[in-house]
Design a protein around this nucleic acid. Structure first.
Lengths: 343, 343
DNA sequence: AGGGTGGACTGGAACGATTTAGTTAGCAGC
DNA sequence: GCTGCTAACTAAATCGTTCCAGTCCACCCT
């Protein structure tokens, strides 16, 4: 049952049917009513979205392309919040959300995605060539990384990390350490030995956060090169666990007494494993996180962390895509939250 | 730059261009190579998905329609797991995921969604008329509720709840209570007074879970009508909090010593608020959850709960939609996990 | 009565691909 | 030299809408 069938059935033109569904002012209310009830009776459920999108060139679909796998992204608090901010704005404007991962079968992305009216890209894409495959005339906003000639949304990673490290280092600290998130070029889940060689040039966020920490170290009279660093490959409890066990199970004399973590998930894993080992927080171990996810604020000890409003980040990206605000490069402020893990 | 432009530019037919992209065996490798490189040079990024989906009738998009708002669904562990299971399967088969909420502007759903090749519907939809608006010939799978003439995926709610309640009631219990999730017809966040009148006829899952609890009560010689019940409207910390505070702040003589909760989120909120009040778990208060979300298994006390594999539920729904397994009514087994909150 | 106006509706050309039913050329087999 | 076959490519119909450019008619004004 197509629009044309319905038109023939009712003895009117296809244009009139189309108008009945899309532009009520273009036909008499009586006829419109007639058309709509007949349509329902004959089982015509409105203009086909496929044909419509071809003809109008718009689908009311916005694609979000995520650097990580969808499985990871959907279970990660930060990306979920981002998505929910995006969804919120799209919903109010009658748009819908197409979820794509840039990771696995990157090949399928350009094909399927060209149906979307605009693109929000989250996180650094392994295959940068992907961008050139996207229809160049449609809007594109990058979130949490930089890309030439396109709007981006960020938080102020460096100053935020400087601030929280400074806060942490007010208290005399014997053995500070840093747990990075995806800092290295090559996958590396554990201690980072070769300080420079492994630093990824592309992970601008991680580098900015580390730079903030290091600025605070220098200011506190600590040589950053002396601060031990670990790296974590994926922001999940399972992946964090072995690395953090390695750290917590060091002999007392070597175990850090301050852990600057690059995410709340890492920090929460530290809390969990420290509790299991009877380590007291903050007496035996102080730690800070990053993100400000809800889970870190419910139960004691509440994380000392940097809260970034990922939901708002998503809203902004969505508004930029929909042209509700200028698509420019934008840096959002963060907020330090002093919890129990590093008072 | 369209396929037709490219064809004219290269002096071949549109069919040949189309074949170059879709059916390599239909033309000589040499010509195909030529076409692909020229396409890239001239900025043609492959066949337009909109035109293609109109012509072929398939978009390689599967729509997931969620009963709750997207904001809620994306932040809820259970629906996120479901989505990630769906995404996992779709991804491996080159399909993508369109996220729709049946809640807000249900009007936009039929319009936008008719682009999808199939539909997965999660949770009871407030407006059942929605189904009649979906193109009837495309496959549809319902998850966690029943709908006539369509495949469904469920877990065995009643037996699972019977089993866990039976486990909990082995220990002599003075004042058991139940915290329901969305049981009532009318919104009600708090104590349920009028036992029968408010029970929603549509919330089949909640009713099945409650029935399981009640069967165990009867078996333990407890009159279910004497067991106090509360209701929670939305499975979030914020919405749970006031209700659970009301329960925990009852005078000692009235405060339940066993709480059968219909979700882990509710149970975790109980744990959090009980800790704040210095109540010991399980000595002062025993409790059980439902779902088996990861967050409930990391930190002590680990929840005693029913684990349902929501990820697998999603995988099954997706496989049914893609025709990888028969689309029938399917009930999945659950697993009781004895944690610390009700040993 | 004639001209002007505007509301209601229609015809038909796009939109950008896919696909069926060919056509052509080249070559092997006898 | 003729037939038959295959590989390589093409012409044109089609998918289901939207929307521009009209047509038609009723009504109002002078």
């Amino acid at each position: 049952m197509t629009l044309k069938d319905l038109a023939r059935e009712l003895g009117v033109s296809t244009a009139t049917i189309s108008n009945a569904f899309n532009r009520p002012d273009q036909l008499s209310p009586k006829l419109r009513e007639h058309i709509l009830t007949e349509a329902r009776r004959l089982g015509y459920s409105g203009p086909d979205a496929r044909a419509r999108s071809l003809r109008t060139g718009r689908s009311r679909i916005i694609a979000v392309i995520l650097a990580e796998s969808l499985t990871y992204s959907l279970n990660d608090a930060v990306s979920s919040e981002l998505l929910s901010g995006i969804a919120e704005v799209l919903d109010t404007r009658g748009h819908t959300l197409l979820l794509l991962s840039g990771r696995q079968n990157a090949a399928s992305v350009p094909g399927a995605s060209s149906i979307a009216d605009g693109f929000i890209i989250y996180g650094l894409m392994p295959s940068l060539k992907l961008f050139s495959d996207l229809p160049p005339e449609r809007p594109l906003v990058a979130v949490d990384f930089d890309i030439e000639d396109h709007a981006t949304v960020h938080v102020d990673n460096e100053p935020a990390c400087y601030a929280i490290a400074r806060h942490a280092l007010r208290v005399p600290t014997r053995r500070p350490a840093v747990i990075n998130l995806r800092l290295t070029e090559q996958p590396c889940n554990g201690r980072i030995d070769d300080d420079q060689a492994l630093l990824s040039a592309e992970r601008t966020i991680t580098r900015a956060r580390l730079a903030g920490f290091q600025r605070a170290f220098v200011e506190a009279g600590i040589d950053p090169a002396e601060v031990p660093m670990w790296n974590i490959e994926e922001n999940t409890f399972e992946v964090c666990t072995p690395v953090i066990e390695e750290i917590l199970d060091l002999p007392d004399a070597e175990r850090p007494d301050l852990l600057l973590c690059m995410s709340d998930r890492i920090a929460l894993t530290v809390v969990t494993l420290a509790e299991q080992r009877g380590l007291r927080i903050p007496e035996d171990l102080r730690l800070t996180g990053f993100d400000g996810i809800a889970e870190g604020q419910y139960r004691a000890p509440r994380l000392t962390t940097i809260r970034q409003d990922s939901t708002e980040k998503g809203r902004i990206a969505a508004r930029m895509i929909l042209g509700m605000e200028p698509a420019e490069s934008r840096v959002m402020a963060t907020e330090m939250m002093i919890g129990d893990t590093c008072p």
